[in-house]
Structure formats: structure tokens, C-alpha cells
Amino acid sequence: MSEKEQDNTTHFGFRQIPVDEKVRHVADVFHSVAGKYDLMNDLMSGGVHRLWKRITIERSGARPGQCILDIAGGTGDLTRKFARLVGPAGKVILADINDSMLKVGRDKLINGGTAGNVEYVQANAEALPFADNTFDIITIAFGLRNVTDKDAALRSMQRVLKPGGKLMVLEFSKTQNLALTKLYDFYSFNILPQMGKLIANDAESYRYLAESIRMHPDQETLKEMMEAAGLVNCRFENMTGGVVALHTGIKP
């Protein structure tokens, strides 16, 4: 089922808003948090986001000479590691719809010595500006839940994958334990906005981020959406009790 509702509204956190306004609202959130994004990621997850990303890199099977697309790549954590793995014969494209995030990521990577085999593209995941059958691997980490029409985005990703190419979706998901769920909810809706207020002077953006996690499809639903987009061998791996899940699928 498409994210676009019959009454032409969609969710922004727990609110319903017109479909054509969601991109602007999400952009406002990430313009606001871009400068503190890395710091807040470390604080919010206790640094565990680095482990989730490392597992994603390990599961990717990336190798020299490949072409990789990192969608919603933000500040470039995955891009930096992929650039090292594909080497000078390969290429990594860091794509993000938000120009503030893209600029932070570009500056961070260039200042850190990652430059030669990385390109930067401002792009909407729902209509990727790339030719069919271009990429060996596509990743989208903590970005799919912010996309207005997730089904369209998955179809777009499937289109630009090479046959045999792999899509990897790393995203917050649904916890598998009642006690963990209660603790996670308390943290998300009480602690997280206060951290956002203290560190980034923006409680509302972090309240939205917590709400957007709850509105994201569960593990089985996202797997079915990937299959509906034309991917095969779709599966998911829960991390940290289902707080995060890594979904993978292959283009036939």
C-alpha cells in the first residue's frame, strides 16, 4: 500500500499533513539538526549507531571497483567506509535530499581525506536521478522513515540497481520485548526531546524523529514492501532487540 493516503494526506510524526508539504517539513527538521547531527547520534544511541553501521558494511560484501549509492547519506559515515573498500577503481555517491546535511557530509569527508572516489548529489529517493542498472549496492540508513512515499522510493532504488545488486535498508524498527519497548518509549518521548533541547536547542525536531520511528512499518511489512518493489531474497536482521533492523534484498 502506498504511503500516499486517499485523502491526499500523509503522516509527519503523529500528525497528518498534506502530502505535498511533507518534504518541506522534513527538510526543516534536518536543516535544524545538521550541525549537531553526529554529536546527537552518539549521545542518543550511546555510540551504538557505529556498531549498527559497521554490521551493515560487513553484510554489504562491498569490494574494489564497485559503484555504490548511499541514499540519505547525511554526514557520510557509510560513504567514508565504502570509499575505502571500493578503492580508486570504484565510486561512491553520497546522496541526500537535504542540502544542509549534504554540505556537512561533504565537508566532513573532504576534511577527513576522503575525496577522489566520492561524488555528492542532492536527490529525492522517490525519483533517483540515475540511469537504470547503475549500482552494485544501495544503502539507505535511517532515512527511509522520512520519505513520503516509501513504495515509490523502493521502486526507484530497485530500478537503479544492477541485476544481482543489493539494497540494504538500515532503519529503526519494532522492539521484540515488552519491557524493552516500554523503556524505549520512555526514553524516546521523555529523554530524547530534552537532549535535543539541551544540545541542539531543538526539542521539536527530536520529538518528530521519535514519532517517525513509531510510524515506520514493522519488519515484516517492510520486507513485503521490498518484495512488492521487485526485490527477491528479502530478509531482515534485528539488532539491539529490534530497536534497529537491517533489511536486504536483491534485484533479480
Rank of each mutant, 00 (worst) to 15 (best):
G249W: 00
V29A: 12
R24H: 11
L43N: 12
D7W: 03
V48R: 13
G61E: 10
D77Q: 07
A89I: 06
L170D: 01
Q194F: 12
G241M: 07
F130H: 09
F189R: 10
E5Y: 08
L178G: 00
P88C: 09
Q16D: 15
D218F: 04
V160K: 03
F142G: 13
Y187C: 09
T181Q: 12
H216A: 13
Y187P: 02
E237I: 10
C234I: 05
K182A: 13
V86P: 01
I140K: 09
P217Q: 09
E220H: 12
G164E: 07
F236Y: 15
Y206P: 01
K251Y: 02
A153Q: 03
D149G: 08
A229N: 07
G196I: 01
F12L: 04
L85K: 14
D38Y: 04
A83E: 05
F186C: 09
F130Q: 06
T10I: 15
E211W: 00
E204S: 15
L109Q: 07
S173G: 11
Q16S: 14
S60W: 02
V118S: 06
A179K: 13
E3W: 10
L161M: 08
P193G: 10
Q122L: 12
K53T: 08
G230K: 06
G61Y: 05
V169G: 02
D7Q: 08
E3A: 06
G65Y: 05
H49F: 03
K91N: 11
A229R: 03
G164Y: 03
R63L: 10
G90E: 11
